[in-house]
Design a binder for these strands. Structure first.
Length: 322
RNA sequence: GCCGCUUUAGCUCAGUUGGUAGAGCAAAGGACUGAAAAUCCUUGUGUCCUCAGUUCAAUUCUGAGAGGCGGCA
């Protein structure tokens, strides 16, 4: 792997890639500032930070940070556009290739565990989500009820029905959508379970004590309001923002739209809801991340150890001499 | 000061015609087949404010006290 190939930039298969993930508010962005921009570039793996105009609420890295170390996959979509894992993988592959081309190491950093999982293993061959079909399925579920939807799933795809909980309409409807689209049960498309292209990333999981994370989240949300989160919402409203916009499903946005539906905009209530939802989200993220294989868990404050781990990964022979 | 209402899980509150109690939210744990900041699952022992009385038995009834809310002074 240390071969001095004539085409070093083309050896995508075994090139170094670093995964950096952790729950919201753990301190990923702060850590990125310690990376040498001459050696590393960042690829964002956050499903909300891909959207333009969603800066404060999504806790996007500031322009200064992005100036000091390049970030890919930020501001690539408008908030009314749908984004998806499939697109993430395609864009991330491109970014990884171009970063390698520059002779640098890509650091994929973010909190969307689902994106990391499928970037590493790839997706099944099942057809991508189709908004039209999805709406049609949703309508039928609306008319006939959830029980009907699950019974129907049991008929067309008993294997998926066993895996999916009867109340989990998000997944039931995707399974029905796939059947509608391909006339094949979702479970007939197998899910890969080995890394794509022999990828062997360094997987760093950042963690913190839950009390500490809680305090940090509370502080961060306060700062978001100080930085003008409400102005950001108002300017989105001027753009015609609707609660249904995909980007606005993010925590820190949807709470405002829910509040407006009830005809009230109470700063303190909304702030509390954002805080609560962030905590719940952080918990779900941790649960997902914990299920990943070969994670090097590190305390987010131990920057020295994290950088050392990266050194080990990039130059194993060098380190072993010491 | 008087009158009324109120005190039950971390929070908001149900409830037991007297047999020691249960929802939502939170919290903890979990799932995750192209929307994933989404969607979903599991988990409920708490001096039922305190003391005394009635009773086989009181969180439930009676009395007194304490806290809260409201009205009248």
């Amino acid at each position: 792997m240390k071969s001095t190939s004539i085409h070093p930039t083309q050896s995508n298969a075994f090139a170094e890639i670093i995964f950096l993930f952790g729950p919201t508010g753990v301190g990923k962005t702060e850590l990125l500032l310690d990376l040498d921009p001459k050696k590393f570039s960042v690829i964002n793996a956050d499903s909300i930070q891909v959207y333009r105009y969603l800066d404060i609420g999504s806790a996007k890295a500031s322009l200064e940070v992005r100036h000091s170390i390049p970030h890919h996959l930020i501001d690539i979509k408008d908030p009314w556009e749908q984004f998806s894992v499939g697109e993430f993988i395609a864009y991330a592959d491109q970014a990884v290739a171009s970063i390698h081309q520059e002779g640098k190491i890509p650091v994929i950093s973010g909190g969307t565990a689902y994106y990391f999982k499928h970037f590493l293993y790839g997706l099944s061959e099942a057809p991508p989500s189709d908004e039209g079909v999805r709406l049609a399925v949703a309508q039928r579920i609306e008319q006939n009820g959830r029980a009907w939807a699950y019974e129907y799933l049991k008929q067309i795809d008993p294997i998926s029905a066993q895996r999916i909980h009867p109340m989990d309409m998000y997944r039931v409807s995707r399974a029905l959508e796939v059947y509608e689209k391909s006339k094949r049960p979702l479970s007939s498309f197998s899910l890969p379970d080995t890394p794509r292209n022999g990828m062997h990333p360094l997987v760093i999981g950042l963690m913190r004590e839950s009390d500490q994370l809680r305090t940090r989240l509370a502080l961060r949300i306060k700062q978001m309001f100080d930085q003008g989160l409400e102005d950001e919402i108002r300017s989105l409203l001027r753009m015609g923002a609707q609660m249904s916009w995909p980007g606005l499903q993010g925590i820190g946005y949807r709470e405002f739209f829910q509040a407006m539906e009830h005809g009230e905009w109470s700063r303190s209530i909304i702030a509390d809801q954002i805080e609560r939802n962030s905590r719940l989200y952080a918990k779900r993220q941790m649960t997902f991340f914990k299920s990943f294989a070969q994670v090097q868990w590190m305390n987010a404050d131990e920057k020295g150890e994290i950088l050392t781990a990266i050194q080990w990964y990039l130059h194993p022979d060098c380190m072993s001499l010491q």
